[in-house]
């Protein structure tokens, strides 16, 4: 029984971190109607940035946040404006531009393999002051960096939710995601909105990277498993919804952790896809999605 509770709580903790990467994906989709296949690679870039920050300064890994998050925002912002924008514009009358999906896949290949060329294939772990710290509670163990990570996710989620609801830029982003044409008629500059959305989505990856570095390793294709999880999560939660992404992440974490207590871990993977398809069929808008989108 304790094992199941332990698994449940660990699932929630790890799931929130999955949720954080999914928030970025869902934000980009909500605005641009594009699935960003390079999302995992952006996470990888963030993780290398955070790794080198920790290794070179030797500081507490969470001090990397004010450096890595703006860096990733900038990275996403300019990636959208230089690479994706021209392609997006060529197909702007199409509601869901498929060429852009292929371009993000191209970016994924380029980034992952550039990392392989520059950093090599080895696995790197940053030993930090919080690495390996645990809470013990009735023979149940919870990792401190995971607890901190889950906390940071909640703060980010609430902040982004507030930002979209109340700030000027947030309102413009929401208007664009509801109706592109109407928003641009209202004088909202679409290109700028896309850049900011892509930047914010990437910044979420940067945040997730800083949270992961104290207890995870980094290598060139580290983003791929997170990528596929993020796809499942955004559909569970509803494409475009921030609370949905975090909740979806937690659900995935719970399925993975608790499910594995009753079956071999290889079967939980299948269970995950099963739940995903079930949600798609029964409620394609996910937990919090707009009906408009599926």
């Amino acid at each position: 029984m304790l094992g199941i509770i332990e698994a449940l709580i660990n699932g929630i903790l790890m799931g929130s971190i999955y949720g954080l990467t999914a928030v970025g994906l869902t934000l980009i989709f909500g605005v641009m109607k594009v699935i960003n296949f390079a999302h995992g690679s952006i996470l990888m870039v963030g993780m290398f940035a955070a790794y080198w920050f920790v290794i070179l300064t030797g500081w507490n890994p969470y001090f990397a946040i004010p450096v890595v998050v703006p860096l990733l925002f900038w990275f996403g912002y300019y990636m959208q404006s230089f690479i994706i924008k021209p392609i997006f514009e060529a197909e702007k009358d199409v509601r869901e531009p498929i060429t852009v999906i292929i371009v993000t896949t191209g970016i994924w290949y380029v980034l992952d393999n550039l990392a392989l060329m520059i950093f090599g294939a080895e696995f790197r772990v940053a030993k930090t002051s919080v690495t390996g710290q645990v809470f013990e509670f009735y023979e149940m163990y919870f990792l401190l960096p995971k607890v901190i990570g889950a906390g940071i996710t909640m703060v980010c989620g609430i902040y982004l939710y507030w930002f979209l609801k109340h700030s000027r830029m947030g309102k413009a982003i929401r208007a664009t995601s509801l109706d592109r044409e109407a928003a641009s008629l209202m004088g909202i500059k679409q290109a700028k909105i896309y850049n900011v959305a892509f930047g914010l989505g990437s910044a979420c990856c940067g945040m997730a990277a800083c949270v992961l570095i104290p207890f995870y390793y980094v290598y060139p294709t580290v983003g791929v498993p997170f990528d596929i999880k993020a796809f499942i999560i955004v559909v569970l939660g509803g494409l475009g919804s921030i609370p949905g992404a975090i909740l979806g992440g937690i659900i995935v974490g719970i399925i993975e952790n608790v499910g594995a207590q009753f079956m071999a871990a290889t079967w939980t993977e299948l269970l995950l896809y099963g739940v995903f398809l079930f949600v798609l069929l029964v409620k394609p808008s996910g937990l919090f999605g707009q009906k408009h989108d599926y």
Binding site: G3, E6, M14, Y18, N257, A260, Q261, A264, A265, E269
Partner: peptide
């Protein structure tokens, strides 16, 4: 007797099972 997917992003559930 526990196989796990080699691309797993989190092996905590396997370790919990192992410990129990």
């Amino acid at each position: 007797n526990e196989p796990y997917p080699s691309t797993a992003s989190d092996l905590t559930p396997v370790v919990i099972k192992l410990k129990r």
